[in-house]
């Protein structure tokens, strides 16, 4: 058995952990939405401001999951937590910024290093000192079967937990869903395609509801 032991949603206007909203976007703030969450959650990691949006989204949701599961990081050795991330458009959001930079001035090295989708996993590995397995795939849409199959592979080959994420950011559209899969999880949802779809979709409902309120 495997369990979804924690999860976080990050949408256009809300951020939720285990289904509970923890932060709502302040449209009047001068700060970016991700920076609002960073400040409100009192995270201290100056490198955050240098990251591209994918890495910021991965940073925020993985930190929130760790905070919701404080014992989780200590349970495992430094190479037993794998990362399995995917999205639809790779690093397209940052790629476009890089192209804009070189067409209107000069190629920026600090943008270029983020023009690969797997960099977000590197940032999370650095943050946590994780040396485990990692895989980044590009899929046409969020696909529970992808996570089921590859978590099965990872968890039968030496990994003890898998931090999974779907992180798709295109312009103003934000669809980030990060979740943790472990072999044990009392009172947590079993890791099935159905349960994963339900939980992922709950974030979308949340979004619709919030948008309707604006």
């Amino acid at each position: 058995m495997k369990f979804i032991t924690a999860y976080a949603h990050l949408k256009e206007n809300i951020c939720a952990v285990n289904g509970e909203m923890i932060c709502r976007r302040d449209k009047d703030s001068g700060d970016s939405w991700f920076k609002q969450i960073y400040k409100q959650q009192e995270f201290v990691y100056p490198k955050f401001h240098k990251m591209d949006v994918l890495s910021q989204a991965g940073f925020l949701t993985s930190k929130l999951i760790k905070r919701a599961n404080p014992q989780f990081a200590e349970k495992y050795k430094d190479d037993e937590i794998a990362m399995l991330f995917a999205n639809q458009s790779g690093s397209a959001e940052t790629d476009q910024k890089f192209v804009h930079a070189y067409r209107n001035g000069a190629p920026s090295p600090s943008l270029f290093v983020y023009t690969l989708p797997n960099i977000v996993m590197g940032e999370i590995a650095i943050l946590n000192k994780w040396y485990g397995e990692s895989l980044f795939a590009v899929l046409p849409e969020f696909d529970p079967e992808f996570y089921i199959n590859h978590c099965h592979i990872l968890l039968s080959a030496g990994s003890e937990a898998v931090l999974c994420s779907w992180l798709e950011i295109a312009g103003n559209q934000i669809d980030v869903f990060t979740f943790l899969i472990e072999k044990e999880g009392e009172n947590r949802s079993e890791f099935t395609a159905d349960n994963l779809s339900k939980i992922a979709f709950a974030g979308n409902l949340h979004k619709t509801e919030i948008n309707a309120n604006y």
């Binding site: 001035g105 000069a106 920026s108 090295p109 600090s110 290093v113």
Partner: peptide, 13 residues
């Protein structure tokens, strides 16, 4: 090291 390269961009810009 990436900041160092970005400083080179700064000097030119």
């Amino acid at each position: 090291s990436i900041d160092a390269l970005e400083l080179i961009v700064l000097l030119e810009k």
